[in-house]
Simulated assay, not measured.
Amino acid sequence: MTARQAAARAAFARLARHPALRGARPVLAGTFPLGLDVATSDLDVICEVNDLALLELERATDAELRRIPLSLRSEPPQAPDPL
C-alpha cells in the first residue's frame, strides 16, 4: 500500500465515523480500493441515505461535511428478482 493509499483509507475511516453518516453504510469506491494509485485519483464514497433532508441539514451546519463535494442520485427500491 502506498502512502497516498494509506492516507486515503485513513480519510475514509474518519469520514465513515462522522455522526451524520451513522447508519448510511459508507463504502469506499473508485480507484483506491482497486489498488490503483494515479495522480488524478479522488475518493468516491457511496452511502445509503434514507433521510436526505436530515443529511442536508447536517451538511449545512458542519464545516467538514461542507468541504466534501456531494452528488446525489436517487433510485427507488427495487424488488428482488424472482428465482
Results as ranks from 00 to 15, higher is better:
residue 60 A to T: 02
residue 70 L to C: 06
residue 59 R to C: 10
residue 47 C to P: 05
residue 64 E to W: 06
residue 62 D to W: 08
residue 53 A to I: 05
residue 29 A to N: 12
residue 40 T to H: 14
residue 77 P to T: 07
residue 59 R to Q: 03
residue 45 V to F: 00
residue 83 L to C: 13
residue 8 A to T: 01
residue 69 P to A: 06
residue 2 T to E: 04
residue 69 P to Y: 06
residue 61 T to I: 07
residue 18 H to Q: 13
residue 31 T to K: 08
residue 75 E to F: 07
residue 16 A to R: 03
residue 57 L to G: 13
residue 69 P to F: 01
residue 38 V to L: 10
residue 4 R to W: 02
residue 63 A to G: 02
residue 29 A to K: 15
residue 51 D to V: 04
residue 10 A to I: 04
residue 54 L to I: 07
residue 25 R to S: 15
residue 11 A to L: 13
residue 32 F to P: 05
residue 47 C to M: 06
residue 76 P to N: 01
residue 24 A to L: 08
residue 75 E to Y: 06
residue 78 Q to I: 15
residue 51 D to W: 07
residue 27 V to Q: 07
residue 52 L to W: 12
residue 15 L to T: 04
residue 46 I to L: 15
residue 5 Q to K: 06
residue 6 A to G: 12
residue 82 P to T: 03
residue 9 R to N: 15
residue 30 G to T: 12
residue 37 D to R: 01
residue 50 N to W: 09
residue 30 G to Q: 06
residue 75 E to G: 05
residue 7 A to H: 14
residue 56 E to V: 09
residue 53 A to F: 00
residue 62 D to P: 05
residue 48 E to N: 09
residue 12 F to H: 07
residue 29 A to P: 11
residue 79 A to R: 10
residue 23 G to M: 09
residue 45 V to S: 06
residue 55 L to W: 00
residue 54 L to A: 14
residue 4 R to I: 10
residue 29 A to D: 10
residue 9 R to L: 15
residue 50 N to D: 07
residue 9 R to T: 11
residue 35 G to L: 07
residue 2 T to C: 13
residue 47 C to Y: 02
residue 12 F to E: 01
residue 46 I to S: 14
residue 52 L to R: 09
residue 76 P to M: 00
residue 38 V to A: 06
residue 46 I to F: 13
residue 55 L to P: 01
residue 65 L to T: 04
residue 48 E to V: 14
residue 24 A to Q: 06
residue 57 L to T: 15
residue 74 S to E: 03
residue 30 G to S: 08
residue 81 D to R: 07
residue 61 T to N: 15
residue 12 F to P: 10
residue 67 R to P: 01
residue 19 P to Q: 11
residue 68 I to L: 02
